[in-house]
Nucleic acid binder design. Structure first.
Length: 641
DNA sequence: GGACGCTCATATAC
DNA sequence: CGTATATGAGCGTC
């Protein structure tokens, strides 16, 4: 039993309907007259035609209304005579960010609390950023996510530290991190309301908290499912929806992937049960108006995922169009608004589809990929988790021909040269602040309580055989081996590659880079025979040096200083024995980083080479490592010169 | 501008 | 383990 939404209380003839958007090209070329040039925070040395951050207005409606705004306010003027671009004049006073101190992250001591940065009402669509622009926006997004996560983890550790003795309620580090960043003006896209995709955020990107979506500008509501620009601040007085979260909060939702029947909000009681009729107001009205104007919405899906960080992840699934809306009787018997969302074509596969696919691959791989498997575990049970070998493009089976080595083997005799095995901790209940092993790590453990790397450092000393702490000690991570399901696969672009079937949270341990370690002298001899050697010293993690740097949040932040270690001067022979890491592709834009770790011996000259996720990596995304070789030189291994 | 209410969060207790 | 409850942040509304 359905009935149509009553006509909107305004004459449609006064509202010019925008050109219908093409399905194949959701971001049609911008007419020059509609190019707006805004000041943004991104300093981008782009090519001239890409230089201006070009935002085109959403529709004819808003374009004309913008002119009215010009008259109403005097903070906008046409400045650029060449392009006719409209450039907003800077705010009269630059707001002063709140000051935090590392020792007291609470803002209570701050005398003057600046007013929070208001949400803009400027509705724009950002188009034609170009590959170089996209790369730079991506970098900004990546950096911001890094700060958010580092700050969140810092707050957790800080709280743990304080909690000794007193049973204080745990706060919400996810929300605390977000508000601190907001006060420091570190939220992205606050100076505009973006319709369509957010520059630097890609379909398939995974987030762990609702507030993280707020920080990115993907979705500004902390709980509400529909985000929209309110009518009173919109240029034509009508609300416009910009994004929705599909998270299973309404029983009348029907999520079929590319088509979603989305329920409007309202009418629920405190327990989330539908107890009243919904009304055509707020987000519901905005959805209806977005449908009328053909304006696309971003869709973010909540996805149940057993995870050490949270029990749920949020996946950006791309742009959808609202094609229908009606008033319906829900399962509860109360009236609800429903919106039919259809995914705009021409976008990459949805992140949630990939998540579901990867999940099936872990439990029932043949059901979704009946052919192509060469092995269901090339490690032959030497790893904790099976390592798949998959090739559906040619007959190459190369990885089968190497003996699988789960850990690097070091030359006999070198391991105990500096042996003073007495140096272990006595933490029978697991290491905690102030213990010997924390001291060995420069007074700060390298991992958080989920076993994620907090920041890069020259060397990590994990607890070892001489320590009395249990295997669950937070200072034992890489020694416990694989934590995620990996797959070696064949691709046209990169040859052999590696991907994970699990989500890899930034800082998650992936695997050791394994080979037969050789001293410099041994390596020199072998090289003459033309063997393939990997030099750990060449691996580059330069791009991730700033990881964990909170100086933008705490002005007095100083990166911790760690004792220097002698340069790594050994090679690894992977010509006969190797592990999964050997198949990771090279990229200067890598998503995997190298961290040296000691755990089973203490010879500083021969640390183990451990690989960690440098950022949140969705399942099925190819892993890459910067081998420190030039780009045109494509082979994966750094061969000795 | 400020108080209030609403919301497809989140953590914890039972 | 699901469910109930407590504590919320941000934003829209009035």
């Amino acid at each position: 039993m359905t009935s149509h939404i009553p006509p909107f209380n305004q004459s449609p003839t006064l509202i010019p309907k925008p050109e219908p958007l093409s399905d194949s090209d959701p971001q049609a070329p911008i007419p020059p007259s509609s190019i707006f040039n805004f000041n943004t925070t991104v300093e981008a040395p782009l090519e001239p035609n890409l230089l201006c951050r070009e935002f085109n207005n959403v529709a004819e409606t808003f374009r004309s209304a913008f002119a009215q705004r010009l008259k109403r306010h005097e903070d906008v003027t046409v400045l650029d005579s060449l392009t006719g671009a409209i450039v907003p004049v800077q705010e009269e006073e630059e707001p002063v960010p709140i000051s935090y101190s590392l020792n007291d992250p609470s803002p209570s001591l701050v005398t003057r609390k600046p007013k929070p940065q208001e949400r803009s009402s400027e509705l724009v669509r950002i188009t034609d950023v170009g590959p170089e622009g996209e790369r730079q926006f991506r970098e900004v997004v990546r950096k911001t996510r890094m700060i958010y996560d580092s700050l969140r983890i810092f707050l957790i550790l800080d709280e743990m530290h304080e909690e000794f003795g007193m049973a204080r309620r745990r706060g919400r580090p996810d929300s605390k991190a977000a508000s601190m960043m907001k006060e420091r003006f570190l939220w992205l896209n606050r100076d505009k309301r973006i319709v369509g995709s957010i520059p630097g955020v890609q379909v398939g990107d995974i987030f762990f908290f609702r507030l993280e979506l707020c920080v990115m500008g993907l979705h500004g509501q902390t709980q509400a499912g529909i985000d929209y620009l309110i009518g009173s601040r919109s240029s034509n007085g009508e609300p416009i929806a910009t994004s929705v979260i599909v998270s299973g909060g309404y029983e009348d939702d029907d999520d079929q992937g590319d088509v979603i029947i989305y329920t409007g909000h309202g009418g629920q009681d405190k327990l989330g049960r539908q107890a009243e009729h919904q009304k055509l107001e707020g987000g519901n009205l905005a959805m209806e108006r977005s449908m009328y104007y053909g304006i696309e919405v971003r869709v973010i899906r909540g996805f149940k995922y057993e995870n050490s960080v949270s029990s749920k992840v949020y996946v950006y699934d791309g742009l959808f169009r609202i094609v229908d809306s009606w008033f319906d009787v829900g399962k509860s018997g109360f009236g609800v608004f429903k919106f039919r969302l259809e995914r705009i074509e021409g976008q990459v596969e949805m992140g949630t589809s990939v998540l579901k696919f990867a999940k099936t691959l872990k439990t029932n791989p043949m059901s979704v990929r009946p052919s192509g498997y060469i092995s269901f575990d090339i490690s032959n049970r030497k790893e904790n988790a099976p390592v798949y070998l998959f090739n559906d493009i040619d007959n190459d089976q190369e990885p089968l021909y190497y003996e699988y080595l789960a850990n690097t083997s070091f030359p006999r005799g070198i391991l105990f040269q500096q042996s003073d095995n007495a140096s272990g901790c006595n933490c029978i209940n697991g290491c905690s602040s102030g213990c010997l092993c924390e001291m060995k790590n420069g007074g700060e453990f390298a991992y958080d309580y989920n076993g994620n790397l907090i920041r890069l450092r020259p060397l990590i000393h994990e607890c070892g055989p001489a320590c009395k702490c249990p295997p669950t000690c937070r200072n034992r991570v890489t020694q416990k081996g694989l934590r995620s399901r990996l797959e070696v696969f064949r691709s046209v672009e990169t040859g052999w590659g590696v991907r994970s079937l699990d989500i890899l949270h930034a800082g998650a341990f992936i695997c050791e880079y394994v080979g037969v370690a050789l001293t410099r002298e041994q390596a020199n001899i072998l090289t003459m025979n033309g063997d393939t050697l990997v030099y750990p010293a060449r691996f580059s993690s330069a791009r991730w040096k700033a990881w964990g740097d909170l100086s933008q949040v705490f002005p007095d932040y100083e990166p911790p200083s760690y004792p220097q270690i002698p340069p790594v001067d050994f090679a690894m022979d992977v010509s006969k024995m190797r592990n999964v890491a050997c198949y990771i592709s090279h990229s200067t834009d890598s998503n995997v980083i190298v961290q040296l770790v000691l755990h089973d011996h203490n010879n500083l000259m021969f640390p183990r080479v451990m690989l960690f996720a440098a950022e949140n990596i969705p399942p099925m995304t190819e892993l890459s490592l910067d081998y420190g070789v030039s780009d045109e030189w494509s082979p994966k291994l750094a061969i000795c010169d």
